[in-house]
């Protein structure tokens, strides 16, 4: 195996993990504030299709990314109105959000199906295809991958060290106490939910604009659920979540690589492997139920009615 190949493997791993890191971090912040949004898959799909459509319409991939974040946040906004404003059940509302996202993205994306566009990396570096192989691999680490590498540390620092982060954790820990201390529980939770939606939209758009630059129906294919699982198994720790996402990316790429080397693997097994491996490893890591209970936001998924 030469260095180009190793570089290719590593870069492909990072690229496969980036959407999980982005969407997962959004959900993590949302859950630390006490809101359980199971609509990640739906928000990613809508982000993917809206980002793609906006890129084709405006001709700018950057505007596409912004549109994807707004679309994800809009979906989360609907969720926030239902669960925070009207105190609807979070689990049911989140599932409905995913079902809606699947249907809406298929309908809205039908005209764009199979329409090729240049990927994010070749937009940033137009001479990508003429670069030397090793340089080409390095340049494939596009701005969103860099973001996915830096964001876990930024989010961890925000949650653990900053005052707004402390308030956010406090709201997720006990909304009654936070309310009694005079914090605006619903406003803080709404902001966290919108952030989660925007990050899910961005993660979805990474798939349609950078990872495989085109729109295909249901292209998120369960990554939103993996992002949700990563949040729990990482025991709500941003850096752990990123490590889990990189593991998922690595197994995905290693599977393809094994196929390329002629190692016989049933295609179904190959498709299942990353999900299986990620869940398995994370379950083993988070076996310690004590730590899981200590880190879990105590008010997660519980509706809050401020008393008049």
């Amino acid at each position: 195996m030469d260095e180009v190949m190793i570089a290719a493997l590593l870069v492909a791993t990072l690229r496969a993990a980036a959407p999980l890191v982005l969407a997962g971090l959004g959900e993590l912040v949302c859950e630390r504030a006490g809101v359980l949004n199971l609509g990640v898959e739906g928000m990613m799909l809508v982000g993917a299709v809206v980002g793609f459509a906006a890129t084709i319409t405006t001709g700018s991939v950057w505007l596409g990314l912004v549109a994807a974040m707004l679309a994800g946040a809009a979906m989360a906004g609907v969720f926030a109105v239902l669960t925070l404003g009207l105190a609807a059940n979070q689990v049911a509302s989140g599932l409905a959000l995913t079902i809606f996202g699947v249907g809406f993205s298929a309908l809205f994306g039908a005209p764009y199906q199979g329409h090729p566009i240049p990927g994010l990396a070749s937009v940033v570096f137009p001479d990508l295809s003429r670069a030397a192989p090793l340089v080409q691999q390095v340049l494939l680490i596009d701005p969103l991958v860099w973001l996915a590498l830096a964001a876990p540390f930024v989010v961890a620092r925000f949650l653990d060290r900053s005052r707004p982060g402390l308030i956010l954790r406090a709201v997720g820990e006990s909304h009654e106490v936070a309310h009694a201390l005079g914090y605006k529980v619903l406003r803080i939770r709404t902001l966290a939910t919108l952030f989660g939606g925007a990050m899910a939209g961005l993660g979805g758009a990474y798939l349609s604009l950078a990872y495989t630059p085109m729109w295909t129906e249901n292209m998120v294919s369960g990554r939103g659920w993996i992002a949700l699982a990563l949040v729990v198994f990482s025991t709500w720790k941003p850096v752990m979540l990123a490590l889990g996402a990189f593991l998922f990316g690595f197994v995905t790429i290693a599977g393809f690589q094994a196929e390329a080397w002629g190692i016989p693997l049933a295609p179904n097994l190959l498709a299942t492997l990353p999900y299986l491996a990620t869940i398995l490893v994370l379950v083993l890591i988070s076996r310690d139920t004590l730590r899981l209970k200590l880190n879990a936001p105590a008010a997660l998924g519980k509706p809050f009615h401020p008393a008049g």
Binding site: L166, A170, E176, V177, A180, N295
Partner: peptide, 27 residues
Amino acid sequence: RALGIGMVFQHFSLFETLTVAENIALG
């Protein structure tokens, strides 16, 4: 609180998983 009223609740309004200093900072 801005006027100078402090209250100790009957059912403690503390966050279990946060430290003493963090709890006080929130108040």
